[in-house]
Simulated assay, not measured.
Amino acid sequence: MVEAAIHGFVLALGLILPLGVQNVFVFNQGALHRRFVAALPAVLTASVCDMILISLAVLGVSVVVLGSVWVKTVLLGAGLLFLLYMGWVTWHSTPGANGNEAARTFTPRKQVAFAASVSLLNPHAIMDTVGVIGTSSLGYAGVEKLVFSVTCIAVSWIWFAGLALAGRITGELDKSGRFMTILNKLSAIVMWGAAVYIGRMLFA
């Protein structure tokens, strides 16, 4: 069981660490709001979505679903359009002093919608979950498989909470809003880059 837990921890951390749309969005929400609790909708949604994807991957359900060509096409198309839109919104977000102006842009409902979209409409993240975590889970059974899965899920929950907290600290230090303005531009570029990647997959 210890081996399964360590394997799940290292694997999940390795997949979640690279800079991606999901990480950028959660960090931004932590930075843009004055209180950490205000960013919880983004944190909880991203964590729950990852939990669902990991569970489906371990159970093998996602392999069957993604085996359908039209499902992949719809997923890629929706992801492409959403990332283009989200990049535009992020690029034009202009934090004022204390980042309060931009914070109004992301209401709890928008946070949930955006976090769910960048989690569930991100083919790259889904393929990683299915291909890496799903495949790795095949080496375990019974309690060990459960431990492996729970560890992967726990890493996501802790990571997103920590990411939002790091964003909150950064936002607190950035009183002028200049850093957040630059970060918004970089975030938009990351999102558009992901959109281009998806577009290549869609039209290849």
Rank of each mutant, 00 (worst) to 15 (best):
S117A: 13
I54L: 10
S156T: 12
A39D: 09
L84M: 14
V48W: 06
V89D: 12
I16A: 13
V48Y: 07
A141D: 15
H124Q: 06
F148Q: 15
V43D: 13
L138P: 01
W159R: 12
A42Q: 00
L56P: 02
N98E: 15
L56I: 03
V61K: 13
F148I: 11
T45H: 10
E172R: 10
T151R: 05
A188T: 11
R104P: 03
I54V: 15
G96C: 09
S68F: 05
V147S: 01
Q22K: 09
R35C: 00
F82Y: 14
F114T: 10
V89P: 01
V150M: 08
A161W: 12
S187W: 14
R104N: 12
A161G: 07
H33I: 01
A97I: 12
W192G: 07
S136G: 05
S136V: 14
S119R: 01
S119F: 02
V196Y: 10
V48M: 14
W70E: 07
S156W: 07
R168N: 04
R178G: 02
R34H: 07
T107I: 01
F27M: 04
A39W: 06
W91S: 09
L44P: 02
L53P: 02
A141Q: 10
R168K: 07
V61Y: 09
A161E: 13
L121F: 10
C152T: 01
G77W: 09
G134S: 01
V10T: 10
S47C: 04
V64D: 11
V24M: 06
K175G: 01
Y85V: 11
G67F: 04
F148Y: 11
V26L: 11
S47F: 03
S47P: 00
L165C: 11
R34S: 00
S117I: 09
G167H: 03
L59Y: 07
S119C: 13
V71R: 06
F106W: 15
V132I: 15
F203G: 05
T45I: 08
I198C: 08
I52D: 12
S117V: 04
I158T: 13
E144C: 02
M180A: 08
Y140P: 00
D174M: 04
I126P: 07
W91A: 14
S117H: 06
G162P: 14
V24N: 02
L53E: 14
V89L: 14
G20V: 07
G8L: 07
V61D: 13
G177Q: 00
L59S: 12
T151P: 10
F160E: 06
A39S: 05
G67S: 11
F82N: 07
V196C: 02
A97D: 06
M51C: 13
M180S: 08
L44H: 00
I126S: 06
A46Y: 08
K175D: 01
H124P: 00
S62H: 08
G30I: 04
T181P: 06
V132L: 14
G77A: 15
W159L: 05
